[in-house]
């Protein structure tokens, strides 16, 4: 069947978009609010995913494994932040990308625990059975759902909940202090704001959110491989952020859908090219899109144009 017409395929792409949306909401807190240029964001997703997978494959019940995995991702954020957050922005960016790569290589090399490049199989544990139970429940009521629908719904419910939670604290004095840190650390410190703690909290919150995206990713893929967590994932996240608009939660949602469709969708379009060239083509498309954005709408789809030229 033509994949473009298959509902299951588009359901999959939309689920990927939802996972990205959650992932980038974490980035939005760090970069959009606190001004932290975190180039190693994928590491927090990896912690969330592998912590879930390792606990589940070692017999921990899923409902315990998932919150623990999210907490571990936050803890990893604190661990990365403690030695690095006193660094200037660009140095921080370099350290985070290195930390992410170190984690990925450790995962790759600890084959006995993680399966290394062969992958961590059945990382989502009994999710498939749970999914079937849900589908049976609906079919018992005369509704035949595609097997991908439950996770699609769960993913987007989680994405919307995270976005609502962030909006809930959006007008709080905490976020005001965070934005002040982004604008000028000295000015914030001069009126008594604990700059370092605020940055650490933003990093950990963003890491926890990325950890949630790692959990969803695990349920979606069922097996985990180190190459799922290469730096390109972080940069796809940044593309979404630029596309949607830094500072806009709704922009993250729309940006995620557009980028997920380009990345997952392009390979199924009928180009007169070999498969590996088509795979490369999607990044060309993303690159052109970002360049076009920078030239014609640098604030992103939903960013505030008037904020763009306000420096100093």
């Amino acid at each position: 069947m033509d994949p473009l017409l298959a509902f299951g395929f588009w359901a999959y792409v939309l689920t990927v978009a939802g996972v990205y949306a959650v992932f980038v909401l974490g980035l939005q807190v760090q970069l959009g609010d606190a001004g932290l240029l975190n180039f190693g964001h994928v590491a927090f997703m990896a912690v969330g995913a592998y912590a879930t997978g390792l606990m589940i494959t070692n017999g921990v019940p899923m409902l315990i494994a998932i919150p623990c995995a999210v907490a571990l991702a936050a803890l990893f954020g604190v661990l990365i932040g403690l030695p690095t957050l006193r660094l200037r922005g660009d140095f921080f960016a370099i350290v985070t990308i290195a930390a992410g790569e170190i984690l990925r290589i450790i995962i790759q090399n600890r084959q006995d625990e993680t399966g290394g490049t062969l992958g961590l199989r059945r990382a989502s544990g009994s999710w498939r059975e749970t999914n079937n139970t849900i589908l049976d429940w609906f079919s018992g009521r005369g509704i035949e759902l595609d097997r991908r629908v439950p996770l699609l719904v769960i993913t987007w419910v989680v994405a919307v909940l995270v976005a609502l939670l962030l909006r809930h604290i959006g007008r709080s004095p905490w976020r005001r202090a965070l934005r002040a840190v982004r604008e000028n650390e000295d000015a914030a410190a001069a009126v008594g704001k604990p700059v370092f703690n605020l940055k650490l909290q933003a990093l950990a919150l963003g890491a926890a959110i990325a950890g949630i995206s790692g959990v969803l990713f695990t349920l979606l893929q069922t097996s985990l491989y180190p190459e799922n967590f290469e730096p390109i994932v972080t940069f796809i996240g940044f593309s979404i952020l630029i596309l949607g608009g830094i500072g806009s939660y709704f922009g993250v949602v729309v940006g995620s859908i557009i980028i997920a469709f380009i990345i997952s969708g392009v390979r199924f379009l009928d180009f007169p090219l070999e498969a590996d060239k088509v795979a490369a083509l999607r990044y060309v498309v993303v690159g052109l899109l970002i360049m076009g954005m920078m030239a014609f709408r640098p604030q992103g789809i939903f960013g505030k144009r008037e904020e763009l030229h306000l420096d100093g």
């Binding site: 004095p173 005001r176 202090a177 934005r179 002040a180 604008e183 000028n184 000295d186 000015a187 914030a188 001069a190 009126v191 008594g192 704001k193 904020e307 306000l310 420096d311 100093g312």
Partner: peptide, 16 residues
């Protein structure tokens, strides 16, 4: 001066 450029003037003051 170190103003918080992308924040409103009143937010700059409320921060303190």
């Amino acid at each position: 001066t170190r103003v918080l450029g992308k924040m409103r003037v009143i937010e700059n003051v409320m921060l303190a």
